[in-house]
Design a protein around this nucleic acid. Structure first.
Lengths: 234, 234
DNA sequence: ATTATAAAGTGTATTTTTTACGCTTATTTC
DNA sequence: GAAATAAGCGTAAAAAATACACTTTATAAT
């Protein structure tokens, strides 16, 4: 490993390899999914893995994560946030690599499904994941835990829904995240009391004869809520 | 993207400097404090700073943070947790350094105050901090935010108190963390209803003639609560 | 020794939030 | 036009949060 030589300072420090890995969540009508990739190179060739990359000298850590997402899904402007650092010495037998895991949330529409083919990736049902390499299993568990926590004080779930959605759809999303049933009527009451939803005239009739009114969230109210850090205990 | 060329893998990746920085909180009777250090080396020599170090090849990131804490305070077994990664390209003019910030909570007793002298550090009142170098100001703000959040679902505040403490002391701690007054009577009711405190026979009379009973938390109940992730909204 | 003082501790009434669940409505299918 | 079914509405009961009056305990001042 070469020593860091350029600047005047910090000459005694050992440079290390720093990577980012992305835990990509998707929500499709009634189930939570995860985007996984089949590794192209050894070791662990052909095994399922999160997608990642090394952080480059001239990019920030978050930029690196965004680059990974763009390169492997074609998508930008996706909600993404740091999960945490995975820094055990022996976590990667290939070398001493520290990884900063990031989790991303995306709406799963038809287009997104084509990602799988285009990028040799596959969307897996969250509760039917294959074995993953390295400590990626742990990263995924931690990401779900974080997602659960985060939804309690930030209406983050919207990131996983299309722009227009029905209240029952939103409820199902929360049921999937929390892994427990939520009362239809109380959920509606609670969510509407927050006044962050705007009712539209359209209905979505894919789930019932009657159809459910579509809503979208009011960006100003949403933003206000994010800043005030309002409780969102469902 | 990452290329694998065994046995030394990842040869095209650029190694970077990875550091850890520690935000060390202390609580002393009725105020929240932060331990800061006067930098010994250039750049920013003699300016106030968090304490940190580079991560070594043969230690985990968390171990590096613990080493820093031990080296600069002499203490081990202190509550410490990752805050997040600070990875902007130009955050350190000395070199491209990514820092993983950690925050630590400690009880401030007489002995701890001697740390300041022994290690050329200084405890500052949280609301009277000097200007800090680099993005350390931001780290400190983020750490307080995280501390506030975390106290909502984990009774983390205890980490800042001595083993035996009174309910009024605990309340003052939460008042300091949340920066707002809490009703004495309701606070007591709430905290006792959680059944994680054990009442002792002793009283602490430093704050009143009558004295307040000392308590300690029940480690089993506490652990159970941590695992269940109970709400701790004060 | 008596009394004033002040924080600690107890109790209770009120308001707000959460939970449980029955009933009505809109639309499609037979 | 009757049956079916998810969507949507309303209300009562339980639980939790809030506000605040009162009592207790020990010390210090007289």
């Amino acid at each position: 490993m070469e020593k860091y030589t350029s600047p005047i300072y910090y000459t005694d420090a050992t440079p290390l390899l720093l990577a980012v890995d992305c835990i990509i969540f998707g929500f499709d009508r009634d189930s939570l999914k995860l985007l996984l990739f089949q590794r192209k190179v050894a070791p662990f060739q052909a095994e399922w893995s999160l997608i990642g990359s090394f952080v480059k000298r001239e990019e920030s850590v978050l930029t690196a994560a965004e680059r990974v997402l763009k390169t492997h899904t074609g998508l930008t402007n996706v909600f993404m946030e740091e999960l945490g650092t995975y820094g055990q010495v022996d976590r990667d037998p290939g070398a001493r690599v520290i990884s900063v895991a990031h989790y991303a949330l995306m709406r799963l529409a038809e287009e997104s499904k084509q990602i799988a083919d285009a990028y040799k990736a596959q969307w897996f049902e969250f509760d039917q994941l294959p074995e993953l390499i390295l400590d990626h299993q742990q990263m995924v568990e931690d990401a779900l835990e974080k997602l659960r926590r985060k939804t309690r004080y930030r209406p983050i779930g919207f990131e996983l829904l299309p722009e227009k959605f029905t209240i029952p759809q939103l409820r199902v999303l929360y049921e999937v995240i929390y892994q427990r049933p939520l009362d239809r009527r109380n959920f509606r009451k609670k969510i509407l009391s927050m006044k962050i939803l705007e009712k539209l005239e359209e209905k979505d009739k894919t789930n019932s004869r009657k159809g459910a009114f579509l809503y979208r969230f009011n960006p100003e109210k949403y933003q206000e809520m994010v800043e005030r850090g309002v409780d969102f205990v469902i």
